Amino acid sequence: MNLLDIDTLQLCSLVNTSAFGIVFLLLWRGRKADDYLLFWSASALLYGGVMIGFALWGERGMGAATALLMMLAFSNTVSVMGVRRFEGGPVLAPWMALPALVIGVAHLGPLWLMAQGWLPADSQIPRIADVLGLTAAMAINGTAMISGPLRGQRIAGAGLLAYIPIFLISLVGDLGVLSGDHSLGSLPLLADQALLGIINLGLLVLPIDQAQDALRAAALRDPLTGVWNRAGLEVQKRRLLAPGAAVVAIDVDHFKAVNDLHGHEAGDAVLRGIAQEAGRIAQAQDGALARIGGDEFILLLPASCEGQRLIVEALMNRCRAAGAAPGSWSVSIGFSQVTAAETGFEPAVVRADKALYHAKAEGRDRVAGLAA
C-alpha cells in the first residue's frame, strides 16, 4: 500500500517547492544584479507547476504525461543553469538537453511499442522505463551539480542524487507489491519533503560560501598593494618550502623622506609600484610576494625557478628605472636560499634580512647575498 495519500503528498511538495521559489524571487527583487536567483526561483516554481499538472492532466493522455515528465527533468536542469550563472560561466551547455530527452524517449518508447501491439496492454515495461528515465535524468543533473567546487553545490547535488535509490526502491515496491495506478508510488513524494529542502538550502548556501571565501581572501591580502600580508605569506610558505627556494627581502631606501617631501600618496604609489614589479615576477615564476611591514616586502621564489639571482638583479634594475622619476626612490635587496638541512623558511628569512642590512650599510640601492 502507499505510505501516505498521494494527493496529500503532492500538495505538500507543491507548498514546499513554491515556498522556496518565492524566497528566491524575493531575494532577487532586493538584489537584481544576482539574476542566478531567478533561475533557482524558476526551477522551484516549475517543479510546483509539474505537481499541479500531474494532479490536473497527468492521466489525460500520452502527450500531457510526456510533457510533464520532461518538465520535471528540466526543472532540475534550470537549477544547474542558475549555478553556472552564479559562477560567471556560460549558462547553457549541450548536455542540458539530455535529461528531458532521456525521459521523453523512455516514456514514449514503450507506449509506442504497446500501440504497435508489440507489448501487452498490462505490461510493466512503461512503468519501468519511466522510473529508469527519471533516474537517468536525475543522475545527469545531480552529477553536474555535485561536481562543483563549492559546498552548496555539493549539498544540492547530493540532494538530487539521493532521489536515485528512492526511485529504484519505489519501482521494486510497485512491481512486487503495489497494484495501484501510480507508477512511482508515494515514496518519491514523501522524500520530497526532505530532499527539496536540502537541494534549495544548498543553493542558498552558495552566496554565503562566496562571501566567506572573499572574506578569507581579504584577510590574507594587503589592502594597499593587493599582495599577500604576513598571514598570507605563512600560507604560501607551506606551498613553496623546499631546498633551493629563494627568499628575497626588499626595503625602500629613505621611505620616510618620500612621504615627508612628496606626501603619503606618493609613498603609496611607490609601494604599489614595487608590488606591481615584484608581483609580476612572483606570478611568472609561481612564487609569492608579501608586504610584511610599512615599506618591507618578501618575495619567495620556488626551488624550481631557474636563474633566481638573475631574476633578482632584473627586479633591482626595474626598481631603479621606476625610481628615476621625480621624487626618486631606490630599494635595497637581500637574497638567501633554503638549504637542504632546513625544515622551514625562518633561517633563510633571517639570512635575507642580514643581507638586506648589509646592502643598506654598503650604501643602499643594491643587492646583497647573491654570491654563490
Score class of each variant (00 low, 15 high):
residue 24 F to G: 15
residue 115 A to K: 14
residue 86 F to I: 12
residue 38 L to Y: 11
residue 238 R to F: 03
residue 188 P to M: 02
residue 342 E to D: 04
residue 205 V to W: 08
residue 257 A to I: 07
residue 348 A to Y: 07
residue 332 S to R: 10
residue 345 F to E: 02
residue 165 P to I: 10
residue 107 H to T: 02
residue 202 G to H: 14
residue 15 V to C: 14
residue 312 V to N: 01
residue 291 R to W: 00
residue 356 L to M: 00
residue 60 R to T: 13
residue 180 G to W: 03
residue 342 E to M: 05
residue 271 L to N: 00
residue 37 L to D: 01
residue 75 S to G: 01
residue 219 A to L: 14
residue 267 G to W: 00
residue 94 P to Y: 10
residue 283 Q to G: 07
residue 160 L to T: 04
residue 296 E to F: 08
residue 130 D to P: 09
residue 106 A to S: 09
residue 238 R to N: 13
residue 164 I to T: 13
residue 368 A to K: 03
residue 205 V to L: 14
residue 7 D to G: 12
residue 24 F to M: 15
residue 167 F to G: 03
residue 334 G to A: 10
residue 284 A to W: 06
residue 243 P to N: 07
residue 163 Y to K: 06
residue 191 A to W: 12
residue 123 S to V: 08
residue 293 G to W: 00
residue 78 V to N: 08
residue 49 G to R: 06
residue 90 P to W: 07
residue 100 A to R: 06
residue 340 A to G: 10
residue 73 A to I: 08
residue 154 R to N: 04
residue 165 P to H: 11
residue 356 L to S: 01
residue 290 A to L: 06
residue 226 G to H: 01
residue 235 V to W: 04
residue 131 V to C: 15
residue 35 D to E: 15
residue 186 S to P: 09
residue 18 S to M: 15
residue 182 H to D: 02
residue 107 H to E: 07
residue 124 Q to D: 14
residue 354 K to Q: 14
residue 272 R to E: 00
residue 127 R to D: 01
residue 327 G to K: 03
